[in-house]
Design a protein around this nucleic acid. Structure first.
Lengths: 139, 139
DNA sequence: TCCCTAGGTTTCAAATTGAAACTCATTGCT
DNA sequence: AGCAATGAGTTTCAATTTGAAACCTAGGGA
């Protein structure tokens, strides 16, 4: 939550998934103040979610691209988007939808499942420390 | 993002999934200031994520319980938790894990999939307006 | 050369946050 | 019944964060 807990960070990451890389692109897309954007980008870089690559084409500036950790947020973004699609619009209200770009059909709804494939409801899960792995590593 | 975009809201929702219902329980669990908690709870109620049920047992106070919309956030919470488990701890570092409470084994990793079951990478998706549904409604 | 643009940083007012004190209603104790 | 304690907030106020706008700096083009 510290890394992505504020309102803007996830939007920046979403835009990064959409291919945006430059300061100005993010700013135009999100319409937030430049100082805030600079701070958020710094923060995301500091948390290893974005990487600042220096001057790719020739301009003396930076590009911000997702790291593996940042790309790991994709399922979260999908979950957020699906939730918004399902609950944040009235029945008649039209809105965009996340689709498989190959077929144009909606992405499957994300559902937490047990290892055996059962769909898990919230009450069927809990948090635990991982069992002190019994699979010994070769010494 | 307006509904759940700030740092505390998702934590409150998570605790609600964990069964917390009362003001004091949330406050103790999260350790945030009472005024902020009150504001967040009001906000979540206003957005239809929590519902304020009056005096269940006999006390003259309220309980905050998840609505359907709130319960719909479960996949998102799972995604967030899995991301944290995967990327926010060092290799040796021990941390809790979300497991199927029946078997004690970790929940499957959430992966966005196309309707045909293919795992979708970020670049393989895009957003679209839903096709003007060809299935006519009975007039 | 002069001006424009992209990418920031600085400044300052306004909004938000958080800690602590204060209510107010309900127990619990005696 | 009297009285302290607890739970659920609200109020107050200082400190932090935000956001808009102005400013700065390096390159590029006319």
């Amino acid at each position: 939550m510290d890394a992505i807990g504020d309102g803007w960070s996830l939007l920046i990451v979403r835009d990064a998934f959409d291919g945006l890389r430059r300061f100005g692109e993010f700013q135009k897309s999100l319409g937030l103040a430049k100082n805030i954007l600079a701070a958020r980008l710094r923060h995301l870089v500091a948390h290893g979610i974005l990487e600042a690559a220096p001057a790719p084409d020739g301009g003396a500036y930076q590009e911000y691209v997702l790291t593996d950790k940042g790309r790991g947020l994709f399922p979260l973004l999908v979950a957020l988007r699906q939730w918004g699609e399902e609950f944040c619009f009235g029945p008649g209200e039209t809105h965009v939808q996340l689709v498989d770009s190959k077929t144009g059909r909606p992405v499957q709804k994300l559902e937490p499942r047990a290892r055996d494939g059962r769909v898990l409801k919230p009450e069927e899960t809990c948090v635990q420390l991982p069992s002190r792995l019994p699979k010994r590593k070769r010494s």
